[in-house]
Design a protein around this nucleic acid. Sequence first.
DNA 1: AGTGAGCACTACACATGTGG
DNA 2: CCACATGTGTAGTGCTCACT
Length: 319
Amino acid sequence: MFLCCPLYNTDYGSAYVGNALELLDCLESNSIDLVITSPPFALQREKSYGNVEQEAYVNWLFNFCEKVYRVLAPHGSFVLDLGGAYQSKRPVRSLYNYRILIKLCDELDFRLAEEFFWYNPSKLPSPIEWVNKRKIRTKDAVNTIWWLSKTDNPKANVSNVLVPYSERMKKLLQNPEKFYQPKERPSGHDIGKAFANNNGGAIPSNLLQIPNTESGSRYIQLCKAAKIGAHPARFPQKLPQFFINFLTEPGDTVLDIFAGSNTTGVAAESLQRHWIAFEQNRSYLATSAFRFVDANLNQSQANTLYTQLMSSSQTVALK
DNA sequence: AGTGAGCACTACACATGTGG
DNA sequence: CCACATGTGTAGTGCTCACT
């Protein structure tokens, strides 16, 4: 079985409406270089996009991950973004994001290549009951991101995701003699002369500080203009961008099985990677086309495009 | 008519970032 | 500088409906 009839396609990718469980079966084994996705979380509050309850959640998500394992190339990576949650009626954390991680490594032979933590400083203090009303917990502003691989050495290159040096390090690089003595420190760290080499940037840490605010973006503006609700839970483009740069090369293929508003697809497109997006909700995927089209689309053009995507049985070519 | 289960809906209390 | 974004959990209210 092969994938056919995407809702829309672009220079580099195709977006498909449907259940990822079925669509994954249409992909060839070992064909995907990176699967990055953020599934609906096991939250207490019911979401419009349909989340599964905590107890059943781990098994529900596991079904998808089994199929991801098959389509992933041996050097490929599976990056899974999971938000934390509380147990029902107790100020006690759910362990669901850790349970799924352990199950994936124990039962599917995934390796935990590295755990990442996405810190969103602009998150509102929540959950309200424990944090704002009773004031017995701090605000939850970190998501766990599991970087899983099929083999011990998935393709990865940290040189592609270097971050700017700090002001202090910039000064050190300008005048190393004045700023440090190469010698062994009390901690046992051997800080040598090579420490003063300029490597073009600092090695990033596994704490990703990325604010999730998207005020007045083209996507939001066009959703408003066309009078359609935007996807209520989008991740910032910088998040998939980081992992695509880190774990793939131009020409590789990136897959998001819970694509939502297809942030992953846009990130991949801008980095010249092929991409495939699966999303069950046709309206979410239809609005995601706004991310790819001309910035000067007016209200009626946005509406026309949306209507076309919602009704047409043929693939719409964007660009 | 009264009761209670089950459901949908709502108030509550808060921080930080983006983009025009 | 302003307008407007943003993966929350609990308890209370009020409604419908089955049952007595």
